[in-house]
């Protein structure tokens, strides 16, 4: 089982690469401007914010838990940043504070899930509403748009001859960091072991509660970083920021091959899935497909992504009896 699972993963990642290339080829037939360096790099900006959330969610999902409050943590982060901006705090000080606030929100989820052993889905459903409510209460209905240019740099500026978005570099660094954490350190091993079998991990001496709280805090911190990018991209902070983006995030994580029950999956798959979804959405935009249809496509991909193992199992079931019959025939 484990060897076949190992062999499956690179295959799935190859399939994602092929799908990205196919989606790109389809997009290039829609518009002559698609295959320009500016456009290709610029279009990545559309999925950097959900991408940062997906990196954090992937860590939480590896534990067999879920966090659907991440988009609400973005709203808390943007409103906090607007308060700091209004108070005249320099960005270099404000940015770490916002990331820390995100981490605190995440750690609160982690505390409820790990320490109090509450079901993560119900808890983060509750905090999803509570965090967004907090953001609305702390901010105002009108929102805040008077950000200083320094505050917008991270999300809006480009470097290397005005081609590569700064936020893409932030995302690349975050992705590399989380990949290293999950696949090259003992912490990552402990996360996957908890996801596979929490009891066995506990008996093996893994600090299950601590690992889980740190995973949630990491996801919250990445949501805080996403809040910084949000402010740069949209220049506004309001309680309803990033509302409803969790569908894209969960789709990316599931389509990237993370097992939603925990214990299996790779970060490279998640990043590839993000590029695939980003390319598809960009292409649908070029083809003038409306938002609702894009949502339907996204929902369909999500369902297709999770039906994949079930479909593979069904095919295996269908082919196995045939094989044994053949074997029996040969034996006779």
């Amino acid at each position: 089982m484990s060897t076949s699972a190992k062999r499956q993963l690179p295959l799935w990642e190859m399939a994602l690469v092929v799908a990205i290339l196919a989606a790109g080829a389809w997009s290039s037939t829609l518009s002559p401007y698609y295959l320009s360096v500016d456009q290709l790099f610029g279009s990545t900006r559309a999925f950097i914010i959900p991408g940062l959330l997906a990196l954090g969610l992937a860590v939480v999902v590896s534990l067999g838990e879920i966090d659907i409050s991440l988009a609400s943590i973005i709203a808390v982060g943007t409103v906090a940043l607007s308060k700091l901006s209004a108070a005249g705090v320099p960005f270099a000080v404000a940015a770490p504070i916002v990331v820390a606030i995100g981490a605190l929100c995440g750690a609160f989820n982690g505390l409820l899930v790990a320490k109090w052993r509450l079901p993560s889905l119900a808890v983060t459903l509750g905090t999803m509403g509570a965090f967004r409510g907090l953001a609305f209460i702390a901010g105002s209905e009108v929102g805040y748009t008077d950000f200083d240019d320094v505050y917008l740099w991270l999300g809006s500026d480009y470097v290397f001859g005005g081609v590569v978005p700064v936020s893409l570099i932030l995302f690349a660094l975050a992705a590399a960091g989380v990949w290293f954490l999950m696949h090259r350190t003992g912490y990552g091993r402990r996360c996957f072991s908890i996801g596979l079998n929490p009891d066995a991990a506990w008996f093996a001496g893994v600090d299950v509660v601590g690992v889980k709280i740190r995973a949630y805090a990491l996801a919250g911190a990445l949501a805080g970083a996403a809040a910084l990018v949000w402010v740069g991209q949209y220049g506004s902070a309001r309680g309803d920021n990033a509302d409803g983006s969790i569908l894209f995030v969960v789709t990316a994580v599931v389509l990237g091959g993370m097992d939603i029950n925990g214990g299996r999956g790779t970060l490279s798959g998640v990043v590839l899935a993000l590029f695939l979804l980003g390319t598809i959405r960009n292409g649908l935009g070029l083809a003038n497909v409306g938002g609702p249809t894009q949502t339907v496509v996204l929902g369909g991909l999500l369902v297709a992504g999770v039906l994949r193992p079930a479909a593979a199992a069904a095919i295996a079931r269908l082919s196995r009896p045939a094989k044994t019959r053949e074997a029996r025939a040969q034996g006779e």
Partner: peptide, 27 residues
Amino acid sequence: LLVAYGRVPALIATLGTMSLYRGFTYI
């Protein structure tokens, strides 16, 4: 069908159909 026979986790399956049904209403 998705949850019981497709063995898709309930959250994922219904998150998908949530957007499918709502998207279909819009279309």
